[in-house]
Nucleic acid binder design. Sequence first.
DNA 1: CTACACGATTGGAACGTTCCAATTTTAAGA
DNA 2: TCTTAAAATTGGAACGTTCCAATCGTGTAG
Lengths: 333, 333
Amino acid sequence: MKHPTIHDVAREAGVSKSLVSLVMRGSDKVSPTSREAVLRATKKLSYRPNAAARTMVRQRSYVIGVMVSNLHNPFFADVIDGIDMAVTDASYRSILTTGNREPRRERLAVTTLLEMRVDGLILLSPVMHRKHTIEASRSVPTVVVGKAMRAATVASVTNDDRTGAAMVVDHLFELGHSRIAHIDGGSEAGAQPRRAGYERAMQGHGLENQIQTVSGGFTEEDGRVGMRRLLVGGTWPTAVFAANDLAAFGALEVLDAEGIDVPGVISVVGYDNTALATNHRLGLTTVDQPRHDMGRMAAELILAAIASAGTAVNHAVLTPKLIVRGSTGPPSP
Amino acid sequence: MKHPTIHDVAREAGVSKSLVSLVMRGSDKVSPTSREAVLRATKKLSYRPNAAARTMVRQRSYVIGVMVSNLHNPFFADVIDGIDMAVTDASYRSILTTGNREPRRERLAVTTLLEMRVDGLILLSPVMHRKHTIEASRSVPTVVVGKAMRAATVASVTNDDRTGAAMVVDHLFELGHSRIAHIDGGSEAGAQPRRAGYERAMQGHGLENQIQTVSGGFTEEDGRVGMRRLLVGGTWPTAVFAANDLAAFGALEVLDAEGIDVPGVISVVGYDNTALATNHRLGLTTVDQPRHDMGRMAAELILAAIASAGTAVNHAVLTPKLIVRGSTGPPSP
DNA sequence: CTACACGATTGGAACGTTCCAATTTTAAGA
DNA sequence: TCTTAAAATTGGAACGTTCCAATCGTGTAG
């Protein structure tokens, strides 16, 4: 259980510790003989370099720390995948911590990363107070994904919610809808711009007096409540745009229970293109965020910031894509 | 961007570095005056202890490393949550790496953890070759979750797949089914014992000649392929037990497309009780693994192994629970 | 007023690397 | 064979902590 050190390897191979270090780092100024001997010793002792020691002397860990607010959301798996790719390509490594959506634990998760002296910090939809994000960003290059951050020291990667929402409205308009309602996402990440995008697109099509928004959220229950609210009035909308897939599912459930045909009577659209949207019986029309690219972009921003010693702070906004499935169709005449 | 050190704090507070160290570690043999001064200095400089340096001298990192084979599987989120709880309670910390199901990347993920000198290693359903797990276990206490490991140095936490599968068969048998088919999980973690449990339970009910297994896997596509295969023969089964929820959804999709009623004509059961199982229109009958407890147990095994210097290797097997939902019912006469 | 005990504080060594400057070895040319 | 350049190898300092043994100060008992 005691880890061998570079000295043990040196002794075993009959060379100096410096030479072992050279071999481990793949230097080309080592004779084949020595390299061979060192490698053999390394294998025999199953030596593994000590990252802590290396970090100490190099003053760099070559590690990017990623804090995931919520591992339960499969959205992040793809983002992390993108991060991992880009980071590995640059011969950095990535480690994750998770805050389980609780601000306290998020902060602990970030602290862990910071104490380990990661060279860069990526925060995936943090829910902790923004001042803690900003504080972290003062000691290490930081990028936030999935949440707009207006702060000079924090980079960010988001999808263009405004445009995504507009795409939804455009799609429905082209199908012939005009009574298009929106169940909004309350104060959740991205909800505000989606709502704004919806409203502006409605105006763009001359439907300003058809704008109908009910306040909701990002859960199924929020969707149910919102949908019920929309069914109370005299004239129903012919299409409903929910702020995310989960809420859309809640809406669908209510429509199902009421025996209202989708998309025959009412079309439904979500946002996020989660696995559920694919799996649902009829398939949910939704907006896909380029998750993998968002991750890759986040990694690239971080690496650039590291390379430039923190001067290059950027905000990347990626364009989402409309995915049309069975839950939308032309309105009944 | 340059991190302040304990020396900077000492200078600022007008004390020695040792005193600062004492305060940081919460010692009670420090005068209130000094503590106050040190705390003020740490705040002013926003000092954060350097974990790498601490790990060096303490020869312990107080970090548990977790390698997750596949972040896309929401199953692990709960396990990780359980790990995190237990680890935090013991004032350790946890960090994650992910291998995205690729053996090569898994190995890199484990290497990263090992080089960081984690005090314990938890592997969540590793797909890499077992020899690499065993190798890792020789340098640090290791526990594998979700996959049986017969190795003297590796602890493990699994659910009793055999019993879980038997529960499914029992349930279907009680409903009156006899033509119960199984879409198995190929070589995935837990697939083999689930299949064995299915077969033994069938025998237990005197249904040995009704045993019908088609080879599948853990993806939706595997479920689709398996289901189509089952529909080719002359007599259809009246119930299908898929090796996991995702495969079950694939099967459901095919049945839906063919217009075959579930559970009227064919009942379907999955395994894992993922969020999808709850959300699906009719609810999927499935088997719930005590994910949170599995994580907690894994953490406890690791902490025990660390405390006992690696002597206490254990294998914990937790009992799963059948969750009955709308996808199963009595067979049509 | 002195001695002593005890609490508070301190300096130095050690942890396992990297990197630099210095040294040794080898090879080539005369 | 000698000289010199190039290649290979080396020891030591440094990184930021912890922990130990040693020292410093202060109050109290005699």
